[in-house]
Design a protein around this nucleic acid. Structure first.
Length: 306
DNA sequence: AAACCATGCAACCGCCAGTAG
DNA sequence: CCTACTGGCGGTTGCATGGTT
């Protein structure tokens, strides 16, 4: 017998949230912060479980959510990050200000996976499908270097292969298959640092060298991945844009200084961990859809003038 | 106009790790 | 050390919507 859900025990409401519930939750968190999620429903007068409240807040009510469609730049970044982090949606989301893990996960499952497959790239390994299909046995004892593996296995952020460098999703573009660029194991040239890492093919190394480098690179990667600023800098030099040659839509207000006046009021209630993880915050609700507009009004009322 | 299908998205489920008692 | 509780995460489901037949 499986466990009953937390909602089952207490005959709690499930399913879509009504505007009234949203408002209750929003007002409560605005006023008191979220503190202990499990006690929020009671305090806010909601027939929901704490988990449900938390999810609703994180995925929908948070005033700093970006909403709207993903830009090409964001999509490429997600692909890049997925190649490094695998299905660690929350970690990926932490590097896309204003986007939730759920949103990114949905995008990946419904859209990006398909796009990659159309381009002949395996969405799991980020390698050409032909290589994945044919080459299973070739690297027998080595697990895939991409996705679902500890970060320390990666010596650098994953670039698209050189031959894929233009217009990743350009309908006219079709990637060359394996032969032209060989194995797509992401790596560095020796002596590379986070900032001057050269995307290239992995070099053959001895185990000792690998271990040493792993340690070194792990530190770099940890730093890089934990710092959106560093990541941004690294990406600016090395990233999808430069590789994919993608037209970047300008988003002038996308990143703001956390000390900006508009965000200062939010800092009062924003969970500290989130503040630390996302120093680069965007203005809330840049591109709200219609549904988002309602919430924008609500959140603006709730947060704009505390 | 109705039925069917595909897609996107919101929310739930179940597991896990951390922690307080 | 054990147990219960909580928050967080990734996988999955189910509904709403829009497009097609």
């Amino acid at each position: 017998m499986g466990r009953q859900s937390c909602c089952y025990k207490q005959k709690l409401r499930k399913g879509l949230w009504s505007p009234e519930e949203d408002e209750k939750l929003l007002r409560h968190i605005t006023k008191y912060g979220h503190g202990c999620w499990s006690s929020i429903p009671k305090q806010a007068g909601l027939q929901r479980c704490g988990k449900s409240c938390r999810l609703r807040w994180i995925n929908y009510l948070r005033p700093d959510l970006k909403r709207g469609t993903f830009s090409q730049e964001e999509e490429n970044l997600i692909i890049e990050l997925h190649a490094v982090l695998g299905n660690r949606w929350s970690q990926i989301a932490a590097r896309l200000p204003g986007r939730t893990d759920n949103e990114i996960k949905n995008l990946w499952n419904s859209c990006l996976k398909k796009k990659l497959k159309q381009k002949g790239i395996d969405p799991v390994t980020h390698k050409p499908l032909s290589e994945v299909e044919n080459g299973e046995g070739n690297r027998s004892n080595k697990p895939s270097l991409v996705g679902h593996h500890p970060i320390h296995q990666y010596t650098s952020p994953p670039p698209p292969p050189p031959k894929l460098s233009s217009n990743w999703f350009n309908p006219e573009f079709s990637p060359p298959m394996t032969a032209s660029y060989g194995p797509l194991y992401y790596g560095t040239t020796t002596g590379g640092s986070a900032n001057n890492t050269t995307w290239g093919l992995v070099q053959t190394q001895t185990e000792e060298e690998e271990e040493e480098e792993e340690e070194e690179e792990e530190t770099k990667w940890t730093e890089l991945l934990n710092s959106p600023l560093l990541m941004a800098a690294a990406l600016q030099n090395q990233t999808p844009q430069s590789y994919y040659n993608i037209e970047i839509k300008s988003e002038p207000c996308y990143l703001t200084n956390s000390s900006s006046s508009s965000s200062s009021s939010n800092d009062m209630w924003w969970p500290q961990t989130q503040q630390q993880q996302l120093p680069l915050r965007h203005e809330p609700l840049q591109n709200p859809d219609i549904c988002g507009k309602d919430m924008q009004t609500l959140t603006a009322a709730a947060f704009g003038h505390i």
